[in-house]
Structures are given as C-alpha cells and as structure tokens.
Computed example of a mutant assay.
Amino acid sequence: MAPTSLPTVRLPSGDTIAVLGQGTWGMAEDARRRKEEIAALRLGLNSG
C-alpha cells in the first residue's frame, strides 16, 4: 500500500501530529474479539 499524506495539526508544544487517529474505545470488552482487535491495531500502525 502506497503511503498517503494525512492532514496534520501543530500542538501548543510545537509537535505536529496527524489529524486522523486510531481509536480504541470499546476494545477489550469482549475477550472473544481479542485477536481481531489486535489485528486491527497492527494494521493501522503498519499502514502509517
């Protein structure tokens, strides 16, 4: 997958971060979904 440019925002500290984030709300609420949730996080991290 080719990298794409995401919009960024500059924080008061001067650091720049992507506007889009990967949320984890509701994760780990059902142990049966653990493997799928970890896979989703890894995919997001690996995709940049």
Rank of each mutant, 00 (worst) to 15 (best):
24 T>L: 11
21 G>K: 08
35 K>A: 15
40 A>E: 10
20 L>W: 14
36 E>P: 01
27 M>A: 03
26 G>F: 02
21 G>H: 10
11 L>R: 01
3 P>K: 08
37 E>F: 04
9 V>W: 02
47 S>L: 14
39 A>R: 08
30 D>V: 00
3 P>Y: 04
35 K>Q: 15
23 G>C: 04
33 R>M: 11
21 G>D: 10
9 V>C: 00
4 T>F: 10
9 V>K: 13
48 G>C: 06
44 G>Y: 10
37 E>Y: 01
38 I>G: 01
5 S>Q: 15
40 A>F: 03
20 L>F: 10
23 G>Q: 11
37 E>N: 05
41 L>H: 11
46 N>D: 15
12 P>S: 03
45 L>F: 04
14 G>S: 02
46 N>H: 14
12 P>W: 01
2 A>I: 13
33 R>W: 09
40 A>N: 02
27 M>P: 03
27 M>C: 14
14 G>W: 05
28 A>M: 08
10 R>K: 14
11 L>V: 01
26 G>S: 05
36 E>V: 13
24 T>H: 15
32 R>I: 05
36 E>A: 11
7 P>M: 08
45 L>N: 04
12 P>F: 00
30 D>I: 04
47 S>Q: 14
30 D>E: 09
48 G>A: 01
36 E>F: 05
26 G>Y: 04
44 G>S: 14
1 M>G: 13
25 W>V: 12
42 R>V: 12
47 S>C: 12
19 V>A: 15
29 E>A: 07
13 S>L: 02
25 W>I: 07
24 T>R: 15
46 N>C: 14
2 A>R: 08
32 R>W: 06
40 A>S: 13
18 A>F: 15
35 K>V: 15
41 L>Q: 09
30 D>L: 06
8 T>D: 00
17 I>T: 09
4 T>D: 03
32 R>K: 11
19 V>C: 14
35 K>N: 13
24 T>D: 14
7 P>K: 14
47 S>A: 14
33 R>F: 08
21 G>Q: 02
2 A>V: 09
11 L>G: 01
